[in-house]
Structures are given as C-alpha cells and as structure tokens.
Nucleic acid binder design. Structure first.
Lengths: 189, 189
DNA sequence: CTAATTTGCCTAAAGGCTTTAGGCAACTGA
DNA sequence: TCAGTTGCCTAAAGCCTTTAGGCAAATTAG
C-alpha cells in the first residue's frame, strides 16, 4: 500500500483550512482522515488526540497573526501603528475566521506561555510605548486594546452587527480613532 | 413507571446549570438525561435536538442578563449607568460562566431578533443618550461598548490575564473610567 | 545490496453522543 | 370510567474518538 505522506505539519495545516471552511469547532479528526483519504486511526500516530490537533491549529494561527502583526508594525508608530495592528487582526479574522477562532482556543498555561501569543502581547505594549502611560495604566490599556479588538471582531463575525445599516468598517475606524484619542489625552485619572 | 415530570423549562434550566458547571459546549442531551435519571431518547419529546436545547439556554441567559441590566440601570445615568451596566455583565460572567458563554451562542437572525439581546442593545443606546452623540457615532459607540465588554470578559474568563499581577478588577474600573471620559469628551472627530 | 529496524497506515473494536421510530403505561378530561 | 393524549422506554442506526495489534513500506546498517 502506498503511503499518504502525512505529517503533523500537513495535518495541522489541513486542519486550519478545514477550520476556515466549516468552523473551528467542526474540525474533526475524522474529516481530516477523509480528506487525506486515509483511515481515521492512522492519524493518531501524528497527533495525540483531537485536543492536541486543535492546540496545534491554535498555535499555527497565533504564529500567523503574530507574523502579520510584526510585518504591519514595521516602521510605524503612534496612531499609525495602532491602526495597522488593529487592521491586521480584522483582516485576518475576516480572511480566516476558522483560524481566528482557533487563536482563541484555551491553551494550558505552559503552552500559552510558549506560544506566539506572547509576541502579540509584546507588540501591544510596544504600540503603547508611543503613548506614555506609566504602569499599571499600561497594563490596563493593553487589556482594553485586546478586549476591544477581540470583542468587536467576535461580534462582527458572529453577525451581531447585521441588523444595522452602519458599515462595520466605519465603526472600526471610528473606534481606532477614539482609542488613539483616548490614549493620547490620558493624563492619569 | 413513575414519570419524571420533565418539561422544556426544567430541561433548559438544568442545561444552564450544567453549562456553569462544565462549560457551555460540554452541555449534552445525554448528560442531562443522566441527571434526570431518564433515558436519552425521552428528552427528545421536550427538545427538538441538541441545537434547540442550546438555543433555549442561550435565550435564558440573554433574558437573565437583560433583567439584571434593567435592574442595575434603574435610576442611574451617565457614568453611573455605564459602570452599573458594565459591572452587571462582569458579575454575571463570573457567577455564571457557562450561561455567559451561552449568551454568545450564534442564534439565527429570527431568533436573535426576538431575544432579549434586543433589550440589551436598547439599554446600551439608552446609556449613550447620556453622552450626546449623533448618528452614526452613537452606533459606533454601541459597537465599541459591546466589543470592549464582551472582549474583556472573554479574555479574563479565558485566563488571558493570569500572567500579570495587575488585578482584573482594577483594569475593569480603569476601562470604564476611560470609556466615560472618551464619550464625554468626544466632539465628533 | 541485503537484512534489520523503524515507521506509516490498516483492521478491529469499544465507548460516547445524537436522533428517529415505535410501543406501552400513566395521566387528563369528559 | 373510558378514550385520548402524553411521557418515558426499548431498539437501532450513524458518526466521532481513541486504543491495540499487525503488516508492509521506507530507512538504516552491515
């Protein structure tokens, strides 16, 4: 019997694509096996279990996001950086909804600490360095930024804005603008 | 054979409790049957299917949230109202993580339009009436508020803040403060 | 270039959740 | 009390996960 040439890598990548097609929580070892035209059990030598597979997809997504953000931030600062960063997330979420959902997958602390999520947090702090905020304000601001971006995208992708005529893109720009203003004018209380 | 006295109501309520215990996506018709000491198939006369059950739990959560928000908002306005509203969500999310997750369950448009989610959107707009924002700014602001609140809570509950020493409560208060300032001083661009 | 070893994919099988079909007993109301 | 409705049950099929054990293909060693 010819071998299919499956690797953990390929499996993860295929899982990410599947996620974008059918949604992250519809990603199933069985479906992947079908796509590789291989029996389900065969995949268990490449991946520990379903949770492991999802974790890998999540890590891939976090990596991709961090890479894009790094590229977007190069040479920018201030509001420019903030907007580029925010747009990176929105674009990614819209282009790869499944992967974006995967990036939200709950990782155990150890895995999370070794993930590209750390790079993302670092970038957020770097952006905030453009607005001078002392600690703990900076941490508060990091959390707010993370919250708005994730929350807004989650609502938008979930269809939460479809009942109003206002263009989500406009709201997004408005929000970035508002956040910039807020951070610039924040004097501490 | 004695009857168990199961109703759609009780099932939904038990489902909500189960969600708080094990997480919304671990809510299963089978587990519910076990808890009612009844065969699984029996539940299918009270609930169409698993999706139907989850929808009902989501609607229950949305209702509860809207009720709490309504109560919290009574007699308040301005920042006071904003803070009370935001705190309502945070308290609910912390007390009932499973239900809170359920409230994020993707409902089909018709169901969503008939849900208490509409009341919540209305309350957000009511709060914003305390800050005078013309359209479409008001809509942008509604989306930003919804985004921050949901996004922040989702990150907090997901354990996203556990690596820093800063108290999430403090960040929360800081963010509410910041949003109030932002909305108060927003002059349009 | 074989022979030995590793490794990839397979069959088999058990366990869990979902959902439908059909049946009988327990309530309900006339 | 008797007919009708309703609630819970058994049976069964379909799909997903995960483990165990086996054979053959690829790789490494002699």
């Amino acid at each position: 019997m010819a071998r299919a040439g499956i690797t953990t890598e390929r499996l993860t990548r295929a899982g990410a694509e599947l996620a974008d097609e059918v949604g992250f929580d519809q990603v199933t070892v069985s479906e992947l096996a079908r796509r590789f035209d291989v029996k389900v059990a065969s995949l268990y030598s490449h991946v520990k279990n379903s949770h492991d597979l999802k974790t890998r997809i999540a890590l891939l997504a976090l990596e991709e996001l961090a890479d894009r953000a790094t590229a977007a931030l190069a040479g920018r600062s201030g509001k420019d950086a903030l907007a580029a960063f925010a747009d990176t997330y929105r674009d990614y979420a819209r282009q790869h909804p499944g992967r974006y959902a995967a990036a939200q997958f709950r990782l155990d602390p150890g895995t999370a600490a070794a993930s590209a999520g750390v790079r993302q947090a670092g970038m957020t702090r770097a952006i905030l360095r453009g607005y001078d905020l002392a600690e703990p304000d900076q941490t508060h601001a990091v959390r707010m930024l993370g919250g708005v971006i994730h929350g807004y995208l989650s609502l938008e992708l979930g269809g939460g804005f479809s009942h109003t005529a206002v263009d989500p893109q406009e709201s997004w720009d408005w929000i970035v603008d508002a956040l910039d203003t807020l951070l610039r004018t924040w004097t501490g209380r």
